Every structure is written in C-alpha cells, then in structure tokens.
Lab assay of single mutants.
Amino acid sequence: TGIVNVSSSLNVRSSASTSSKVIGSLSGNTKVTIVGEEGAFYKIEYKGSHGYVAKEYI
C-alpha cells in the first residue's frame, strides 16, 4: 500500500512508460494498493483492473 504524494493529480498509465496511454488520474493523498514493480513504475490496482504510476510520486 502506498499514498499518492502530489499536490494536484497523478496520471495512471496503461503500461510502465511515460509514453503509454493515460487511463485515469489519482488525487494527492489517495491510498493505492501496489501489486508489482516495473522499472520506475509501480503496478497498482485501479478500477477493477491494473494501472501504472511513477514510483517517485508514491
């Protein structure tokens, strides 16, 4: 489990790349469930599926 550490919002992406499609966003202080790691990204549970967020903001 981690907490989103941004002042505005954090993009949730379809894969572990900054060039991948943005599938949603999370507000600061949102609790997320981390299910894996891939490079500079965490794989998280997101809306019944999975998404990826940059580690530096969790």
Rank of each mutant, 00 (worst) to 15 (best):
I23V: 07
I34D: 00
Y46N: 01
V22A: 06
E38A: 08
N11L: 15
G48N: 09
V6C: 14
T30V: 10
E56D: 08
S49C: 08
I34F: 03
V6Q: 09
S15D: 10
Y42G: 00
S9R: 14
G48V: 04
K47A: 11
S8K: 13
S7W: 07
Y46H: 05
V12A: 01
S27F: 12
L26W: 02
G28F: 14
A54C: 12
Y46G: 00
T1E: 13
A16M: 04
G48W: 06
H50F: 15
G48E: 09
S49E: 10
N5V: 12
V4S: 05
I3G: 04
S9F: 13
G36L: 05
G48R: 06
S7E: 10
T1R: 08
N5E: 07
A16D: 03
I44L: 03
S9K: 12
Y57E: 08
V4F: 04
E45D: 07
Y52A: 00
Y52W: 12
T30G: 06
A40F: 09
V53W: 01
S27Q: 14
S25Y: 15
I3A: 05
V4P: 04
T1G: 08
V53Y: 00
I34W: 05
G39E: 07
L26K: 01
N5I: 13
K31Q: 13
S49T: 11
N11P: 15
V35M: 09
G2N: 05
V35P: 00
S9Y: 13
V4C: 06
S7G: 12
L10C: 12
G39K: 06
T18H: 15
F41H: 04
S19Y: 09
T18M: 15
I58G: 02
S49P: 01
S17P: 01
G24H: 02
V12N: 00
E56T: 09
T1S: 12
V6M: 09
V6W: 06
V32D: 00
S19T: 13
T1W: 12
S14E: 15
N5T: 11
V4L: 06
T1N: 10
I44W: 01
T18C: 15
F41W: 12
G39V: 03
I58V: 10
G48F: 06
K47I: 07
G24S: 03
Y57M: 09
I23D: 01
G24Q: 02
S49H: 10
G36P: 00
I44R: 00
R13Y: 15
S25R: 13
S7Y: 07
T1A: 09
S25G: 06
T1I: 14
Y57H: 10
A16L: 04
S9V: 11
E45L: 15
G36D: 08
K31P: 10
K47Y: 10
I58K: 02
